[in-house]
Amino acid sequence: MLSLPNRPASAVTCFETALHANRQCFILFACLYCLTGIERFIRDFPPAHYTFKIESFNVLSNTEEFERYETGDFEAGGYKWRLSLYPNGNKKRNGHRYISLYLAISEPDTLPLGWEVNVDFKLFVYDQIRDKYLTIQDLDGGVKRFHRLRTEWGFARLISLESFNDASNGYLVDDSCIFGAEVFVIKCTGKWECLTMLKQPVGNTCTLKIQNFSAQLDTSYHYSNVFIVGERKWYLLVYPKGYSSATGEALSLYLELVDWGSLPSKRKLYAEYKFRIKDQVHMNHYERTGKNWFSASSDWGYSNFITLSDLNQASKGFIKNDALIVEGEITVMSMIKVSS
């Protein structure tokens, strides 16, 4: 059984050593470094926003006036930031025998009253031998809230001086070192989207009666009245003697979205639908179903919905008094609402 050390400091030192001595020890040491509340991992690419190089680090750390060093400002996410480095650790926050590094928002007094900035940030120490970056963030994901009463966040125990000064780790080479920061401001844009799937929506059926069916020409077509389902306008389109390749062979029947221009930009609307030809004698209606995504100038349905030979059979009751009744029913439909 693995025994845990009494001090989190031991966990940090062991973890840093394991990263370089034997990377397969990562799982073994995971339970140890969790004690510190800090996540450490190695990555290949540099910090996105700021790097800070120190030459003659030992001269700096041995100069009493440099208990803390603040960098110049850098911009990220629409705000100005700076790094605050304690080369011998921030002893007021239990950083003895460590390097402490903090991210601070610059000129907080110039920000609007009641300001608040939510930030996902990472801090870095560059391994100059392996061209890798030791990456440090909070175990909870690194999101911190900066405000008037808390203008600085970071790590009192960024890295132990023992590990940092070990030449084999590559952090301090020729008495030079490089730190870095990556700062992503989380801004609420107020944008939102709501998807609703309507099943058997109100007013979902449209009926079209075609009179004088026997007199219809091959080029004849009929639109139904517009019917509104879920705030969208639809109509049926019928070619009694067929359309395109079905001309003279079958009745063609389509469902079309009329107000596609009111859809959110580049979006589509999903619908499941049912078409039927009414049997006006036996009530044995002929039905077919479909489902499609509707967009600009698109209609969906069947070019060969029912053959004209079947349609004209008197025994089936589809045509009565030279009239044909067509119905369209939308059974499922998507509704999308977005913020303006």
Results as ranks from 00 to 15, higher is better:
Ser224Leu: 06
Ala246Asn: 04
Gly248Arg: 01
Lys241Trp: 10
Asn225His: 13
Trp300Asp: 05
Lys274Asn: 14
Ser262Pro: 14
Asp279Glu: 06
Arg288Asp: 06
Leu263His: 03
Lys291Ala: 15
Tyr235Pro: 04
Ser252Gly: 01
Asp259Ser: 14
Ser224Tyr: 05
Glu272Phe: 00
Leu237Glu: 14
Gln280Lys: 12
Arg288Phe: 04
Tyr239Gln: 07
Tyr254Asn: 02
Glu231Gly: 12
Trp260Cys: 00
His222Arg: 15
Leu236Phe: 09
Arg232Asp: 06
Val229Glu: 02
Met283Phe: 13
Tyr221Glu: 10
His222Phe: 13
His222Lys: 11
Pro240Phe: 13
Gly261Asp: 14
Pro264Glu: 08
Tyr254Thr: 11
Pro264Lys: 04
Tyr223Gly: 05
Trp300His: 04
Trp260Lys: 00
Trp300Val: 01
Trp260Val: 00
Gln280Phe: 12
Lys266Gln: 01
Ala250Lys: 06
Lys241Asn: 13
Ser252Asp: 09
Lys241Pro: 04
Arg288Lys: 15
Trp293Leu: 11
Ser220Ile: 10
Asn225Trp: 02
Thr289Ser: 10
Leu255Ala: 05
Ala250Phe: 08
Trp234Thr: 14
Arg267Trp: 03
Leu257His: 03
Leu263Val: 15
Pro240Arg: 06
His285Pro: 03
Thr289Ala: 07
Lys291Tyr: 09
Leu257Glu: 00
Leu257Val: 01
Thr247Ile: 06
Lys266His: 05
His222Leu: 03
Ser220His: 07
Tyr270Met: 07
Leu255Cys: 03
Ser220Arg: 10
Leu236Pro: 14
Asn284Leu: 12
Tyr270Gln: 04
Tyr270Asp: 07
Ser298Gln: 03
Glu287Thr: 15
Leu236Gln: 14
Ser297Met: 03
Ile277Gln: 01
Lys266Trp: 01
Phe294His: 00
Lys274Gln: 15
Met283Leu: 14
Tyr223Ile: 06
Tyr239Thr: 14
